[in-house]
Amino acid sequence: MKSIVILITRPAIGNGLYKEAVDTIVSMAIFNLSVKVGFVQDGVFQLLNGFTNSSAGVDTNESNRDRRNIQKRQSTTFEELKEYGVEELFVDQQSAALRNIEVSQFPQIITWADTKDFKKRLSEADHILTF
């Protein structure tokens, strides 16, 4: 079985990559690839507990905000990816520390990876895709 690491490097706001990344992760998992998802640089913001589109002040329209809150509750979405066969969600410890984010602000399901662990996961993968 081929293995792939999907790297999330951008925040969920300001670009359309969040949906593309989730769709790709699900597709890869469905096709029986061994999938791990890594969060690095500003991508760590996507995993913050309670982060929604409205908390970023993106949309002030009430009905749109309610609808998008469901779509953009990132940490919950990523947690649910395990149901699709995603093996691991891991966060670059250094990226989080640089942004003053602590372990308690992430869902419990994630793995905390220091630089050495992070590199190990990348070197073990057959393919890497970056979003």
Binding site: T24, S27, M28, F31, L33, H127
Partner: peptide
Amino acid sequence: LGQLADAAI
């Protein structure tokens, strides 16, 4: 996206 997964395999 299945075609991307297939390419990875």
